[in-house]
Design a protein around this nucleic acid. Structure first.
Length: 431
RNA sequence: GUGGAUGUAGCUCAGCUGGUUAGAGCACUCGGUUGUGGUCCGAGAGGUCGCGGGUUCGAGCCCCGUUAUCCACCCCA
């Protein structure tokens, strides 16, 4: 239909006014929840040095970078917000007052194959807490997620959050199969993250690949995978090392979530490890209860990220919440709001002679903060009404020679149909 | 990457086994006379049928290629 170079690039979206109203609606909820939780908004450039994102743990996110070289600098569009936030924290870590509660609503880029719920650019609501070691931070973040879900109408169990702790798995493995190679833990997590998608056998194959980053034996790989199949927290606690710190933390978190009143929608799941290498402790992800969509949001604790950038050890935890999957879920559930255009007033001067008066009235109303459309072209009154209707205007001001001569405008309430004269701004009487 | 489906008006789509000037609904424009809408009525505009080849007397329809979108799988957040 249209030539290729006139189409939006594959995997990207144009936001027309209708789409944009919906997006703004969602973002407004993101921001309002963040405000209620006393988080401060930050932002960073969408383009960063490529090295900020390239970590060596076999993460696919690194292969999916939109990157380019410009004047001998290797640059990349951010695939996620956390590294940029970490960079910002690092740059001012000596003057910042912890704990930080920061959030951002950002556009992220990943070059990947598209399917339902996955585009190459998408927006994410990112909430991070820096400088808090306790699971009180995780609890606040998970509560914030439920607050958002509640606001958009998904608070009745349509979304559940799976929680696990990488530390739990790490404790067990470092005493066992990874005793000699603790470094293999991060790449191991990246592989385990795929369990749901590629299945048990494929994960065992990858873990036991002699040329891979992990290189377990077949038996070790099978043992590892069996640890992930635990869905019952008490069973996991029973199988964990005695006095396990990870179990204690999870228990503490679950108690807290009880207090926030959200625990009924939270489940323990030992297979959740997340696909990013930097997570160190508790990890979690939100998914629709029917399980028909991809993860809605996800996050976890990354206490060593700042160190890997050369900074001081700083505990941190955060999550990302994408705009695409949530919109699909809302649509499936019939919960997308009708975001119709709605302005406060339309002003119509019948003839050009009344335009100066109309302009003053518009200026006055706009100064009051109203959204006012001043009709620019000459048109039939019938047309003006119909245009006012489609613009969602509440009021229509009509200015004919008679009205302006009397220093008034005819004001019609478009809902009730009631009309009355209202005085024009004083200065107009001089005209 | 593999398989399938789709691509006809601005939008959603119809178009029987190939046959004359390609249709509908919605949207749009104008009108139903002078300054009162959302309804109704009438009229109008708008399409090289994704693109390129081929078969045929004749192609929106058949064949080949190509491109885009969607779905599934593969792959992966």
């Amino acid at each position: 239909m249209t030539s290729k170079d006139l189409q939006a690039v594959r995997g990207t979206r144009d936001f027309y006014p209708d789409d944009m109203r919906l997006r703004s609606w969602l973002f407004a909820h993101f921001r309002e929840v963040a405000r209620c939780f006393a988080f401060e908004e930050v932002d960073a450039p969408i383009v960063e040095h490529e090295e900020l994102f390239t970590r060596k743990a076999g993460e696919e996110i690194v292969d999916q970078l939109y990157h380019f070289e410009l004047h001998e600098r290797r640059l990349a569009l951010r695939p996620e917000m956390t590294p940029s936030i970490a960079r910002m924290v690092l740059a001012r870590h000596k003057q910042l007052k912890y704990p930080l509660r920061w959030f951002a609503v950002t556009q992220n880029w990943r070059y990947e194959r598209m399917t339902r719920g996955r585009k190459r650019e998408h927006f994410q609501w990112n909430m991070d807490i820096w400088g808090e070691e306790s699971v009180n931070a995780e609890a606040e973040l998970i509560a914030a997620i439920f607050s958002l879900l509640q606001r958009v109408g998904l608070g009745d169990g349509q979304v559940k959050i799976r929680v696990n702790s990488r530390a739990l798995l790490e404790e067990t493995l470092l005493e066992g199969v990874l005793k000699q190679r603790p470094d293999a833990f991060a790449p191991l997590c990246v592989i385990i993250d795929k369990l749901d998608k590629i299945g048990k056998e494929a994960v065992i194959d990858q873990l036991s690949d002699p040329n891979g980053d992990v290189g377990l034996s077949q038996a070790e790989a099978e043992e590892t995978v069996s640890l992930l199949e635990i869905k019952d927290f008490e069973e996991a606690a029973a199988r964990a090392p005695q006095d396990s710190a990870a179990i204690a933390q999870l228990r503490q978190l679950f108690d807290l979530l009880q207090g926030y009143g959200v625990m009924e929608h939270v489940v323990f799941d030992a297979s959740i490890v997340r696909g990013l290498a930097y997570y160190t402790g508790i990890v979690f992800e939100g998914f629709d209860a029917r399980g028909s969509l991809r993860a809605i949001c996800g996050g976890g604790r990354y206490n060593r990220l700042l160190e890997t950038l050369g900074g001081p050890a700083t505990p941190a935890v955060g999550f990302g919440f994408g705009d695409v999957v949530i919109a699909e879920l809302l649509q499936d559930e019939g919960l997308l709001p009708d975001c119709v255009r709605c302005i406060d007033a339309m002003i119509f001067p019948f003839e050009e002679e009344q335009r100066p008066a109309a302009a003053r009235l518009a200026t006055q109303l706009r100064a009051q903060g109203k959204s006012v459309e001043l009709v620019m072209a000459k048109k039939k009154l019938r047309r003006v009404f119909s245009d006012a209707e489609t613009s969602g205007a509440q009021e229509l001001y009509l200015l004919g020679s008679d009205e302006v001569g009397r220093g008034v405008a005819r004001l019609r309430n478009l809902q009730s149909g009631e009309e009355c004269d209202v005085p024009l701004p004083d200065s107009l009487s001089l005209d």
